[in-house]
Amino acid sequence: MQQLKGIMPALVTPFDKNGAVDYDTLGSLVEFQLKQGVTGLVPLGSTGESYALTNDERRQVMATVREVAGNRAMLIAGANGSCTREVIEQVRQARDSGYRNVLVAPPYYAIPTQEELTGHYQAILDAVPDVNVVLYNYPIRTNVEVGYSVLDALQDHDRVIAIKESAGNLLRAIEIGDKYKGKIQLSCGSDDQALDFFLWGATSWICAPANFLAPQIVSFYNKYTSGDLAGAQQIVRSMFPLMNNLESGKFIQKVKYGCELAGFKVGVARMPLLPLTDDEKTEFRKEFEKLLG
Results as ranks from 00 to 15, higher is better:
K290A: 14
A214K: 01
G70N: 05
T39H: 01
A105S: 06
M74W: 04
T118Y: 08
L246A: 13
N71T: 11
I252N: 11
I140L: 15
S149M: 07
D196Y: 11
K254D: 09
Y148F: 15
M74V: 15
T64H: 02
Q36P: 13
A194H: 06
Y109R: 03
M1P: 13
F32K: 04
I124W: 00
D228G: 12
K5S: 11
N80D: 07
V255E: 13
Q155C: 14
T39A: 02
A214L: 05
R141K: 14
N71H: 10
T225V: 08
V42S: 03
R92G: 15
Y221S: 06
T84S: 04
V160N: 11
V134T: 09
N132W: 06
A127N: 05
G40F: 00
R159P: 06
L195S: 10
Y221E: 05
D126Y: 04
F197L: 03
N245K: 12
Y108G: 13
T203P: 02
P139R: 04
H120A: 03
L273P: 12
G48C: 03
Y224S: 04
A214W: 02
C83T: 08
R95Y: 09
V133T: 00
L242G: 10
M239S: 11
Y121S: 02
L103M: 12
R72W: 02
V218S: 01
N245L: 13
P9K: 02
T277Q: 06
R285D: 10
R58C: 06
E67C: 04
K183Q: 13
A210T: 03
E57I: 00
E116F: 10
L274V: 13
V104W: 01
T64E: 02
R141L: 14
Q2A: 14
W200I: 08
Q155S: 14
N244G: 15
G263T: 06
Y51T: 07
A69N: 02
R270M: 04
A167W: 09
M271W: 07
H120D: 01
D192H: 08
P275D: 06
S28T: 11
D152Q: 09
F251N: 08
R92V: 13
F197Y: 11
D130R: 00
P272M: 08
S219L: 10
Q60Y: 08
L273H: 10
Y180H: 09
R285G: 05
R58I: 10
A123E: 05
P106M: 03
N137Y: 04
T282M: 13
I217V: 09
D158G: 12
N132Q: 12
M1F: 09
D22P: 04
G201Q: 04
I111G: 05
D22S: 09
K179R: 13
R72E: 07
V144C: 03
T225G: 04
L274P: 05
A167D: 14
K17L: 11
G81L: 03
I76W: 00
S238H: 10
S149L: 11
R66S: 02
R141E: 12
A194R: 06
K5Q: 14
D96G: 01
A232G: 09
I217Y: 00
L151R: 00
G78Q: 00
V134G: 01
V21T: 06
A105V: 03
A262N: 10
R59E: 08
N18F: 12
N169Y: 09
V133I: 07
S46V: 04
N18P: 06
I111E: 07
E289W: 07
N143W: 14
R92Y: 14
V236G: 15
A269Q: 13
Q90M: 14
A77V: 04
V160C: 13
A232C: 09
